[in-house]
Design a protein around this nucleic acid. Sequence first.
DNA 1: CCAAAAGTGTTCTCCATACACCCATGC
DNA 2: GCATGGGTGTATGGAGAACACTTTTGG
Lengths: 225, 225
Amino acid sequence: MSDYPRPALAADVVALGFDGSELFVLLIQREHEPFAGSWALPGGFVEPSESAEQAALRELTEETGLTDVSVEQLHTLSQPGRDPRGWVVSVAHLALLRMADHPPAAGDDARRAEWVPVKRAKALAFDHGLALERALARIRARAERFPFGAELLPEKFTLRDLEALHRAVLGEDLDRRNFRKRVRSWAALVPLDERETGVRHRRARFFRFDGRRLRPFVRAETGES
Amino acid sequence: MSDYPRPALAADVVALGFDGSELFVLLIQREHEPFAGSWALPGGFVEPSESAEQAALRELTEETGLTDVSVEQLHTLSQPGRDPRGWVVSVAHLALLRMADHPPAAGDDARRAEWVPVKRAKALAFDHGLALERALARIRARAERFPFGAELLPEKFTLRDLEALHRAVLGEDLDRRNFRKRVRSWAALVPLDERETGVRHRRARFFRFDGRRLRPFVRAETGES
DNA sequence: CCAAAAGTGTTCTCCATACACCCATGC
DNA sequence: GCATGGGTGTATGGAGAACACTTTTGG
């Protein structure tokens, strides 16, 4: 068994964020060949003492300093020739995180990851574009069927924030009244007494997600993939 | 990059079949430690010249002689220690195949895979039970939302066959009239003029799936996993 | 008073569900 | 003629979609 040729095993992360109006993905601009100058997913090699998920989380933490992040496996990319340097298989992961907590890296360190609007994230290095596609498809499916947004929005948010997120994920067609009816039917969404301030229009109510009531949905999804 | 430790990479297959009343999974009884005597998923090591999917299909073909099979990736199992012999990462796949075309192996070759009823497939070797769980969850989700059954049923089948399959996948609660209404609303299901013969009750009509009309659903699913 | 977004209800259609009886066939 | 499964229709309830106006606030 041990005399089989072995691939290098990478864990890459499609980390998505939301700035209030647009989806972003965390990318690194490559300095060296292959794909020098191209954008690529953050990631690194899996160590024998950890799972691919753990490696993805570790890489993400090293990159952003952020630890309280949900990471889940997306797909394993194993097409021969996907990395010109040799046999490298990559387990792609999806991470959803609150962009506000992880500001765009200070511009001085070129190795730092940057938030790039998903719409502008084209022609990624390797087959990372496929991983991004899958990540978007996954959250689309999730937003269609389940309460969605807890990981991407700040603790408190308005229904308009949530609506903007759904709009960004699903496309432009959403009726406000129907949307509100739908999300308020989720028991997982709890209204707060607090309201927006300093806006020059009526103050929107804040909401938060109830993680307890969200959990059943997280389980329901597992079979969904 | 090449001085990182590398795992052995396996491609394992959860091959599911349906005998008309029950779901089966194709398993191999292990002869050697670890897990000697336990049931395990068929599979083998990925070669540098192929993708994990291709490896899964190759292994399945070697095992069953069958080639016209749909294989898709399920999940990558990478928990450290999952294989006591060393660092082995496995990409688990789902394959759906027509059991009738792949009869239970002749009993004389112990290395041959056997169809085991899913209900009796407990305590699999390694973490193969997890892969089986995921496979079942995936087809459950699919049967709930999309036309399902084309890969598991013979070319021609009766609505009762299809119903039995859905019952096996989803559980026992299915109303026959509602089920028929639902599947007949799929344009993908086409009635034939042919009917059952030799049964001592009214002859059931045969149906087949229209692969052309099925395709849009296959695409719709990609985002679902 | 004006701009900008918050907030709110009703109607309609469609789909899922619940539910019970007659029909064709072989023995 | 009887046992076995094939085959059919209707009524109801809930969810999603379409659709327009009033309210609050800051400038």
